[in-house]
């Protein structure tokens, strides 16, 4: 899968990325972001959409949590707990992969 690994356990240095078969899409008719996956359509809330946009295969979990904590002026530990729970749940469903390629 081009450097993306499945069945992952998230760690702080994991660089999460949406696999090719999971598509974050803004649906014009329903005016909301959706996550399209095999036989599934998930409805992320606003925060989840923001987290998913940060899952670009470049930012580690630690980095994306730090970015969110700074942006919302919120305690990092709390954000870490929520983000990891959300992303691990997606990973367990096979809807999140890990970028294992070196960053240029």
């Amino acid at each position: 899968m081009n450097g993306a690994r499945r069945h992952i356990q998230l760690a702080l240095d994991t660089r999460p990325i949406l696999p090719r078969h999971v598509k974050l899409k803004f649906d014009k008719q329903r005016e909301r972001w959706l996550l399209l996956a095999p036989e599934r359509i998930l409805v992320p809330d606003e925060i989840a959409v923001e987290v998913l946009h940060l899952c670009d295969g470049k930012a580690s979990i630690a980095a994306l949590v730090a970015e969110l904590a700074a942006k919302y002026d919120a305690p990092e530990a709390e954000i870490m707990r929520d983000v990891r729970a959300m992303l691990q749940d997606l990973a367990d469903k096979g809807f999140l992969a890990e970028n294992t390629e070196a960053i240029p």
Partner: peptide
């Protein structure tokens, strides 16, 4: 995150 099969989009 909620699954569309069990609502928001229904």
């Amino acid at each position: 995150m909620t699954d569309a099969k069990s609502d928001p989009l229904a």
